[in-house]
Design a protein around this nucleic acid. Structure first.
Lengths: 226, 226
DNA sequence: TTGTCGGCCGATCGCCGACAA
DNA sequence: TTGTCGGCGATCGGCCGACAA
């Protein structure tokens, strides 16, 4: 999976450390992010944070939901003691590789976008900076937009500029996409154009109800939440 | 799963030994019926047939395909030697519990039945002996037939007697059933009425292409096939 | 600029009897 | 008796501009 598209789908809040950088691994935090219950109760005492080296990162996308995630291989270093004050190469936030300034745009689907009643309202900025240039001399201006998703699958959308006042819309092809991807209002869609001009499409699902509900206890005495 | 409905779906060719009866278990035959390759090569020599007692039988149906199967618990008896001539209680074919004479009917779906174009032609025998009695004084005679499938799920069909010449048909509700169960022409449908008058519906899928194709070798030197 | 609505047109679904095997 | 077909009416999907936030 292309790292640019991965970052576009993950969003700007998600930053990944470079390979070979040093990071702290938080076993408790990791456990809390799994929805299943993980108990450390019977295991020998585990340190709250473990200094590691990032050995490899694989950018992945769930086969069914298209949701992106990363497989990060960590190798523990420095057996247990080290000086917190001395900066011995541990990642600082300002050291994190900034998200590449790629040409991408995300929109949260409105009720009208997700309704099977038809199409998708394309924000002007997205249509003008991400989509292929439209021939406005035609009446109406219309083209077929082709985009590749995280699996490499091709999707085609009819892109038209019409209505009074004029606005950009995706019509034919859109409802098929919504149904196949099982999108609902509140989910987001991401359009991105790569350096060589190809268009990509990704999705970002809204947090569902079960998440954010009562936390599953981990068996740890935790001061702060996530 | 009700044993009557199970037998109706399995068909008359399938006979099950009673619990506590003695049977021969054929490891090779069992292996050949699994579609995956099973190799006995590295294992110690396994006898071709093993005398067993039937400890329990569970009548099951696949959650997705509705196809019926049985889980049979076998306990080996008589360490290895016994007299083939002396009938020491081993099942004979005439000893197999005969299929209960239940009120069931099976029909293989025609192209017209499976087409999304509409309904299902109910053979007269099925409509008159399995379905609830229809009020022929109405014009047209019509009723709603309610049937329970192997999972206990309820299905409703509009049963009408119409056309020239008159025939029994299932209309409304039928295409939903076909789509949900993913039925195609060649699959069979089974209707059965229980002793207390309830109606049940099961399906029997046609052999798909992959089955019956070149056999998967088992590593045994087998004289006869299945 | 863009979210929602009602109108409307065409495609599909599915119920029907006619016919023939 | 029942499988297949063409007809046709109802429903639904989906494209449209109007309008207002």
């Amino acid at each position: 999976l292309d790292s640019q598209l991965w970052h576009a789908c993950a969003g700007g809040m998600v930053q990944m450390p470079p390979v070979n950088s040093k990071i702290f691994y938080f076993p408790q935090g990791h456990a809390e992010h799994t929805l299943s219950h993980v108990s450390f109760g019977t295991l020998p005492r585990i340190p709250a944070l473990i200094l590691c080296r990032v050995a490899a990162i694989k950018f992945m996308a769930d086969t069914e939901t298209d949701e992106v995630y990363a497989a990060i291989r960590l190798i523990p270093i420095g057996q247990n003691e080290f000086d917190y004050n001395e900066n011995n190469g541990v990642m600082e936030s300002n050291g994190i590789e900034s998200v590449e300034k790629s040409n991408s745009f995300a929109k949260t689907l409105t009720q009208s976008d997700a309704n099977n009643g038809g199409g998708f309202s394309v924000p002007r900025y997205c249509a003008e900076t991400i989509f292929p240039r439209l021939d406005y001399t035609a009446d109406p201006p219309v083209q077929t937009v082709v985009a590749r998703d995280v699996h490499g699958e091709i999707w085609k959308f009819r892109h038209i500029y019409r209505g009074t006042p004029r606005r950009h819309l995706l019509t034919t092809g859109w409802s098929t996409f919504v149904n196949q991807k099982k999108l609902v209002a509140g989910d987001s869609i991401v359009f991105m154009r790569t350096e060589n001009g190809d268009l990509c499409v990704g999705i970002r699902r809204a947090k569902r109800g079960s998440l954010g509900s009562p936390e599953t206890p981990t068996g740890w005495t935790s001061a702060s939440g996530n």
